[in-house]
Design a protein around this nucleic acid. Structure first.
Length: 410
DNA sequence: TCTGGGGTCCTAGGACCC
DNA sequence: TCTGGGGTCCTAGGACCC
């Protein structure tokens, strides 16, 4: 049986894990910006009960937040990654699940060779309790024969208090479970596909399963067929043999719009520093660098422009200096004067393990990989000890000079 | 006034090869 | 004027996920 573990209201639960004083009170996590923008990223059940929703722009619900005295936590990704890591370590250490896979920051899959529902439930309860004891995070669990059906089970575990957070879905219950499930709640069927299906009268997950494979193939291609098969109890998704991560991205929407190349250079080099630090942190190197910039798509009154450019290095590296030099060149190439930029980002791709770097025969003498590794190691160590960006490239700018303030209000 | 950030996979079509 | 058949690789765009 496949076991699915889903942390409840993860970001909000992380914030509240250390705030017992806020028990029973509404709280949300939002990526608030200095310009007053931002959206709600996560909410506890109390915040949901007052009518707030994930994705609500803060400015639209400002009054509601105030009226209901909702606590707003600024998003803190480092904290959530830390909680996530602790959960993974705890579960792996106790070895309660086989083939444990981390699917996202707050979702995990594992397997148990147990058919008996009562025994299975006991086992899963141990995992659930362990996670709560370790991290203070409540989770919901589902178990069934495939990943997709296990997610269906979790869906019910979350919605019906009677399950106590654990729902086991055996083969003789597929039909009733899928008949009660809207097709739009199926993992793998998003908004576009739901509209398509509802248009042809397909409403429940069971309706979807009842379609022919050929029809599903034609409408939704291979991914749709996989979902369709999984709902029938035929394992068709493989999460275990996922190779290493394929890309690292760092991007931001700016509080203010930036008109000039130098302003963008400062932002992009900061993104690059963060991306490289993450790259080295996981012991990887990258061979491909991309940079993208975009204007504000919500400002229909302004000229729109978005572009991206990639560069493939001769040999992979994790050197911030080298990668940033490339990024600055890419940025200069795609930058066009006369636009107000609202968002930019960098992507590092074609990742590989840093221990097996293929050296470039024509490597320039200027860039010495051994020296680079020592320098980057020293930078990471200092930034780790004294705070992020204690050491940085001069183009990244100085926090004491709020350059972005010179930008245009969005 | 104000609308996130970080990922994956698949497909169609074009460029190119023999 | 007419213009094959069989491949690979790359890219952009779309859809999905959390």
């Amino acid at each position: 049986m496949i076991v699915h573990i889903d942390c409840n209201n993860f970001f909000a639960s992380c914030e509240l894990a250390t705030r017992p004083d806020l028990q029973g009170k509404p709280a949300v996590v939002a990526n608030v910006t200095e310009a007053g923008g931002g959206i709600i990223l996560a909410l506890n059940n109390e915040a949901k009960a007052v009518g707030l929703k994930r994705g609500n722009p803060i400015f639209q619900v400002k009054n509601l937040l105030k009226a209901k005295q909702v606590t707003v936590f600024p998003v803190n990704h480092a904290k959530y990654e830390d909680f996530s890591r602790r959960i993974v370590h705890a579960v792996l250490k106790q070895d309660l699940l086989q083939d444990f896979v981390q699917y996202s920051i707050d979702e995990f899959f594992g397997e148990l060779p147990i058919d008996d529902a009562a025994v299975l439930r006991d086992y899963i309860l141990k995992v659930k309790d362990l996670i709560f004891a370790t991290a203070g995070i409540p989770v919901s669990c589902g178990a069934s024969s495939t990943y997709t059906l296990a997610k269906v089970a979790t869906h019910y575990a979350k919605r019906y208090a009677g399950y106590g957070g654990i729902c086991i879905l055996p083969a003789d219950k597929y039909e009733v479970a899928l008949k009660k499930l809207s097709v739009s709640d199926v993992w793998g069927i998003g908004r576009k596909s739901s509209v398509k299906l509802l248009g042809t009268g397909i409403q429940s997950a069971w309706d979807f399963v009842s379609l022919s494979e050929g029809y599903v193939r034609k409408l939704f291609s291979l991914t749709g067929v996989r979902t369709w098969r999984e709902l029938k109890g035929l394992p068709s998704i493989d999460l275990k043999s996922q190779p290493q991560q394929q890309s690292i991205m760092h991007s931001r929407t700016f509080a203010y719009m930036i008109p000039d190349l130098n302003g963008l250079k400062k932002e992009v080099s900061n993104f690059m520093a963060a991306a490289c630090s993450k790259l080295r942190g996981q012991g990887s190197v990258c061979r491909c660098v991309s940079v993208f910039i975009a204007t504000n798509p919500h400002r229909l009154d302004l000229q729109q422009y978005t572009n991206n450019l990639s560069y493939k290095l001769l040999s992979p590296t994790s050197d911030t200096l080298l990668l940033n030099k490339v990024a600055m060149g890419l940025l200069e190439n795609i930058y066009k004067e006369g636009y107000l930029y609202k968002k930019a980002g960098v992507v590092l791709s074609e990742l590989s393990d840093s221990s097996a770097v293929q050296l470039d025969l024509f490597q320039s003498a200027v860039h010495n990989p051994v020296r680079s590794r020592k320098l980057m190691g020293a930078i990471d160590a200092i930034n780790e000890k004294f705070g992020m960006n204690m050491i940085h490239l001069s183009v990244q700018g100085n926090e004491a000079e709020p350059v972005e303030k010179k930008g245009f209000k969005s």
